[in-house]
């Protein structure tokens, strides 16, 4: 049973470069968000958290979707390496999901004076997802390692991506909508610089998530290779 992928030697050299790129992009995004983007006339300084909150949320969705895709590949191709990739993607998604809850909470406090608002659909959705994916870790770590665990984790990851739109619909049905909608069907209602800042921040968060994903994957593979070596020695 080998858990290392054929491309692990090339990925080792790619990770520092990716990390450097992510750091640079996050730096540029911070500079743009605080110094280049104009101040929002309505919300003032607190609106600037938008450049982090929304990209982080989108990145979290992307991580969950990535985890589900890898889960699907595992069920389809029965290749064990997808299990670890799915797990790491969901782990990153949960980290970014927690950050979304945190930044959203700060934004809600600054804008509406409350740390938590049930009328904020996106935040409520992230709370549901946070609970759902926290249970993923509980489930995964209480099953013995092996193909059964890989299968069950993959199926649960697939449930996650189905739960996202269903929960979103449910929360919409449950609450009236007062969350500020920035994107409408006519395109984003932002000035050019604001939109550019948003795109840079989005790119920065995506690259950061990908760098963290590759780094964690590298560490986890190293761990399992080491364990295999130890088992062979004893």
């Amino acid at each position: 049973m080998s858990t290392s992928s054929p491309s692990s030697s090339t990925s080792k050299s790619a990770v520092p470069a990716l990390a450097a790129l992510a750091a640079a992009l996050v730096g540029i995004a911070i500079a743009f968000a605080f110094y280049v983007a104009p101040e929002d006339a309505d919300q003032g300084i607190s609106q600037r958290i938008f450049y982090f909150h929304v990209p982080i949320a989108l990145t979290a969705y992307a991580c969950f979707a990535w985890g589900a895709v890898k889960g699907l590949l595992l069920l389809w191709r029965k290749d064990e390496r997808y299990d670890l990739e799915s797990y790491v993607a969901i782990h990153q998604g949960t980290i970014f999901g927690s950050l979304t809850l945190l930044t959203g909470s700060i934004w809600a406090k600054a804008s509406w004076g409350h740390w938590w608002l049930w009328s904020e659909n996106q935040l409520v959705l992230f709370l549901v997802l946070f609970l759902f994916y926290s249970a993923y870790f509980m489930l995964r770590f209480s099953i013995e390692e092996g193909p059964r665990r890989a299968n069950i984790s993959a199926v649960y990851a697939l449930f996650g991506v189905v739960l996202i739109p269903v929960s979103f619909l449910a929360i919409r049905l449950a609450e009236n909508i007062i969350h500020p909608t920035v994107f409408t069907r006519d395109g984003p209602q932002m000035s050019g610089v604001m939109f550019l800042t948003f795109c840079i921040a989005w790119l920065a968060m995506s690259v950061l998530a990908y760098a963290l994903y590759r780094l964690e994957l590298l560490g986890k593979r190293l761990d399992s290779n080491l364990r295999e070596l130890r088992e062979l020695l004893t």
Binding site: S142, I143, A170, L173
Partner: peptide, 24 residues
């Protein structure tokens, strides 16, 4: 049932998925 914790983990798995049902 495949996990060690069994009855303990089931509500954790089930309740987030049951939220839309409760809403409906």
């Amino acid at each position: 049932a495949a996990s060690r914790t069994r009855e303990l983990v089931l509500p954790l798995l089930f309740l987030p998925l049951a939220i839309p049902l409760v809403v409906g």
